[in-house]
Simulated scan of single mutants.
Amino acid sequence: MQTLADLHQLLRLMRLKAPKPSYRDIHRNNGPSPSAISDVFNNSEKVPTRDFVERYVKACGAADELVEACVEAWYRVTAAREEAPAQPSPPVHAGPPYAYVETIENIVEIGRTLLRGDRPEAARMVFEAVLAGRSAALGTSHPATLEVQLLFARSLAVVGDHQLAIAMFVDVWQFRRATLGAQDASTLQAANALANAYASAGDVVAALELHQMIRTIREKTLGTDDYDTLQSLNNEAGALEGLGQYESALALHERVLRIRERTLGTEHPATQQSARHVHRIHQKVRQPPMPD
């Protein structure tokens, strides 16, 4: 996020989480005055102060991590404006403010960064706000809405809300399977995310069944040597290992290793990763390493 429009959009999204506070509610909760809030949002060139951002986001009921993320966004925006020549702000979107695609994509990237940076609770709140906005503006079945729903579900799984995460993953997977087909890459992406959520929740059997289904489809559609097919084999092996079926897991890891040695060479990082998997499972089954 580096534009003022992005910052305005992020601040607007803070109000989307139910119950949606009015400007007066925000002010009563030690936030800026209604006139100050209106002044910021009705003037596309208005740069809010750091104090405004912090008090406004807190008054909207955001957790401390999300308040920090919004303040960090304010610092990036102000720094970028100081370094770059003045540019006219983009035109105000005619529809709901949260439907403005360019800025929303930047806000989604903020959520991704928070999730990668081990700040899942802040990421969850960002994705929840964007999901509410996209659902209202685009509908719950729009591809952009479903993509954010997957991100929101991933953040839920990381913070430990496994049941809600699984329910949201199932919803996306079933919708994509019905509209795009079982073999579509987006459908398989959702199925894989659901399998990982099952594994995180401790239902390794359900995870294994999905990983086996994904692997079978990818073998048929992509071929046995494809990167995604091999990744599915790894995932299946991981589920088998989680169930204590070490010999079956070893057979799959050895299969992946042989393919990667043939197609990528022995020095490739992916091949070396597979070799480590094989060595680790060998330690568990106490068998001699696979002969060269």
Score class of each variant (00 low, 15 high):
Arg177Asn: 13
Arg24Pro: 00
Asp51Val: 04
Pro88Ile: 15
Ala251Thr: 02
Lys220Asp: 13
Glu65Val: 00
Arg76Asp: 14
Asn234Glu: 12
Val285Arg: 01
Asn234Lys: 06
Arg15Tyr: 00
Pro120Lys: 05
Pro91Trp: 03
Ala191Thr: 08
Ala237Phe: 02
Tyr227Gln: 13
Leu208Ser: 00
Arg112Lys: 11
Ala122Glu: 07
Phe52Arg: 01
Glu82Gly: 15
Ala185Gln: 15
Val159Ala: 03
Pro97His: 02
Gly95Glu: 14
Ala59Thr: 02
Thr263Lys: 12
Ile259Glu: 10
Asn29Trp: 01
Ala251His: 06
Arg112Phe: 07
Ala270Gly: 02
Ala129Phe: 10
Ala129Gln: 13
Glu83Ile: 12
Pro120Tyr: 04
Ala84Lys: 07
Val92His: 02
Pro48Gln: 13
Asp39Tyr: 14
Val130Ala: 01
Tyr75Cys: 11
Pro289Gln: 04
Glu209Gly: 07
Arg260Tyr: 04
Val57Gly: 09
Leu156Asp: 08
Ile214Asp: 11
Pro120Gln: 10
Val108Leu: 08
Ala5Glu: 08
Pro97Tyr: 11
Tyr23Gly: 11
Leu252Asn: 04
Gln283Met: 05
Ile107Glu: 01
Asp225Tyr: 06
Arg28Met: 06
Glu105Tyr: 03
Tyr227Val: 14
His253Glu: 01
Gly265Arg: 05
Val67Tyr: 07
Glu109Arg: 10
Pro19Glu: 03
Ala136Leu: 08
Arg134Phe: 07
Glu219Lys: 12
Gly95Ile: 03
Arg177Ile: 01
His279Phe: 12
Ala99His: 08
Leu240Asp: 02
Gly111Gln: 01
Gly61Leu: 06
Ile259Arg: 12
Val158Asn: 05
Pro88Asn: 14
Leu151Asp: 10
Leu16Pro: 00
His162Met: 14
Ile26Leu: 10
His142Arg: 03
Val278Gln: 00
Trp173Arg: 07
Ala237Asp: 04
Pro269Met: 06
Asp226Met: 05
Val172Asn: 04
Ala249Asn: 00
Ala190Cys: 05
Trp173Ser: 07
Glu68Trp: 03
Glu147Pro: 00
Pro291Val: 12
Asp161His: 09
Gln2Asp: 15
Thr49Val: 02
